[in-house]
């Protein structure tokens, strides 16, 4: 086997380790890249090299960025006293896609987990508490998953923040857009009913 073929096999093996890709789809992606070498493969390789060299965690919120402070933390306009706590960077990006939230974020880097032995010390909870006073935070919004681990983490954070006298809110839970009651689990229906409001 030639060296080129070995390199391609190595590339396929690496691509197959990406989420959502298996060996077959990795092979298809690599073949596509090879065919579009100049317009796709080389720019992609260069861009990956640049991101690999510069990508880092924002020292304030934990977002991924190319600079020490991410664009959200660096923007004075986002310092409106609202701080949204999310589990992971992907959740932050999901919130940003909606475009509705104009405050700052704090990425925990996970949730408390009995199974994986993740305790408070493994998360960025102390850094969250340390941000409250210097940034003049008025409201902390807990945007964590409606799971056992997510809500356990939310209650723990609430307990840490309570002494600071800051307003604490959490995202509503209930019927999703396009959801039909018949297809909802009873826990979601209970949460939706408990959070009902005047119509």
């Amino acid at each position: 086997m030639s060296d080129a073929a070995t390199d391609i096999d190595d590339l396929i093996a690496l691509m197959a380790r990406l989420p959502g890709l298996g060996p077959r789809s990795a092979r298809r992606a690599v073949l596509h890249l090879v065919k579009k070498r100049s317009i796709l493969m080389k720019p992609l390789a260069e861009q990956m090299g640049r991101v690999a060299a510069t990508a880092r965690e924002c020292t304030l919120c934990g977002n991924i960025s190319g600079t020490e402070l991410c664009a959200i933390c660096a923007s004075e306009a986002r310092a409106n006293g609202e701080l949204c706590v999310v589990e992971d960077v992907s959740d932050l990006w999901a919130m940003e896609r909606s475009g509705i939230f104009k405050g700052r974020y704090h990425v925990l880097g996970g949730t408390l987990s009995a199974l994986d032995a993740v305790g408070p010390d493994e998360l960025r909870i102390p850094r969250l508490v340390a941000r409250l006073a210097p940034e003049g935070v008025r409201e902390v919004i807990l945007a964590l998953g409606a799971t056992v681990d997510g809500q356990t983490t939310a209650h723990y954070i609430a307990e840490q923040i309570e002494p600071h006298g800051i307003e604490l809110t959490s995202l509503a839970q209930g019927v999703p857009i396009g959801g039909e009651l018949d297809y909802l689990d009873d826990g979601t229906i209970t949460a939706a009913l408990n959070a009902r409001r005047a119509f």
Partner: peptide, 11 residues
């Protein structure tokens, strides 16, 4: 059979 997610709100 039955969910116990109603307890999520009570720490």
């Amino acid at each position: 059979v039955r969910s116990r997610s109603a307890h999520f709100a009570d720490p």
